Computed example of a mutant assay.
Amino acid sequence: MDTKGETSTRIPDTSGTLDEALQRLHAAGPERQGWLSNHAPMAVEALVRNGQAPVVHRWLDHYRAKLEDMPGTSARITAATWREALGDPTRIGDWTRYFERETAERPWREVLAEWWPRLLPGIAAGATHPVIRVGHAVRTLLEGAATAPRVTELAHGLGYWAARHQPLPPLTALDAAPSARAALDAVPRVPDQSRGIVHRLAQLSAFPAWGTAPDPDAARALLTELVTAATHRYATHGHGEPVMLVHAATAPNAVLRALPALPRELWAPSLAAAWAASAAVTAAYAPAEAAPYARTPLTPEEVFERAALHGDDHTIKFTDTALDVGGDVALAAAVRSIELNEPAL
């Protein structure tokens, strides 16, 4: 039977590799050089989950040069002072320690449910890396034991998100789109694409109306549709900015991964925020014209093995999302990311 378009079989981690890798990483901060994200926790989770645990420590040895120590602390964040610290990247160390304490004292689901609606308006912060990191962490906790390294990883992801929290500018609703793909196609590109993401996001003014749902189950279905549409769109538009455009798919997929751990009343607002994040990345980096792409004869496992050998962290994470989506177009998009991004190994 032809299996190249099917979703791959995910392999449970019984080796302890993920916990070992996370322990290696938790002395490092979530950023380097003042703003570049540390992708290692997300990439190693994707590698382990997709059957590439044997390469994780070698990959980390190579990535180690990109890591910087966790920033120091300045003042303890409390239930009475957190609002004044929200969105202050100089408080990364303080926020990390805050969530380490919270997740040590309370169930991780309780902490996540309390903070998710507080953090959601700032979903695009840090080029969406914080929410993506949280999504990877939640997936490991939902699918396996809540070990100390995995709970700590959630704490670090939440701390990064709180420190980088920054809402998008006010947006006008354009005409409603009938589907997620049509909505992404109708997103207006920002006029000045000459500088970084903060400059580009500041130019956002309007998105097509999409992403409202009457109930939680509808919200989940629409969010799944959005992840699929953004993944497929990378096959034709990823050349516009191969690194940054992966986030149009991986950010909403992080939200989708988190939904089962959240109260159902948070699913609809999560969809709206995920749409805003995906549309923002699309507006900031999408090219003016589509490009052709080729289907691949490779199986999902073969595609991910190629991504692991390629070694680029964004490529690994995008391929992981593409395998969640499944199907020929998603696999072609994953192969496109391998072709477009610079190899890291």
Rank of each mutant, 00 (worst) to 15 (best):
I316D: 03
E241Q: 01
V187D: 04
A180V: 08
R200D: 02
L271E: 01
R64D: 09
D2G: 06
T212H: 06
Y160M: 14
A28R: 02
G5A: 13
G240W: 02
F99H: 07
D94G: 11
A183W: 00
T3D: 02
T17F: 05
P260T: 07
L266S: 07
A283E: 02
R118W: 05
W210V: 08
A202H: 08
Y98T: 12
I338D: 11
A65D: 12
I338P: 05
R24E: 14
E289G: 06
P149T: 09
W82S: 11
I123Q: 01
A272L: 01
H239F: 05
E225P: 06
L259H: 00
R83C: 08
K66Q: 15
P167W: 12
T7V: 14
E289R: 11
T296W: 06
R150D: 00
T172A: 14
P71T: 14
A137S: 11
A146D: 05
R336A: 13
L18M: 03
A79E: 15
G326V: 06
A308F: 10
V111E: 06
L141E: 08
W108M: 00
S179W: 12
V255T: 03
R264N: 09
E342T: 15
W275F: 13
I338F: 08
A127Y: 05
L86S: 02
T90R: 13
F207N: 01
D217E: 13
A79C: 08
E302Q: 15
N341K: 14
L120W: 07
E6C: 04
R195D: 15
G196Q: 02
E100H: 03
A254P: 07
L174D: 01
W275I: 05
R91M: 09
P121Q: 03
Y160P: 06
A277T: 03
L226T: 09
T319A: 14
D69T: 15
A272E: 00
P71N: 13
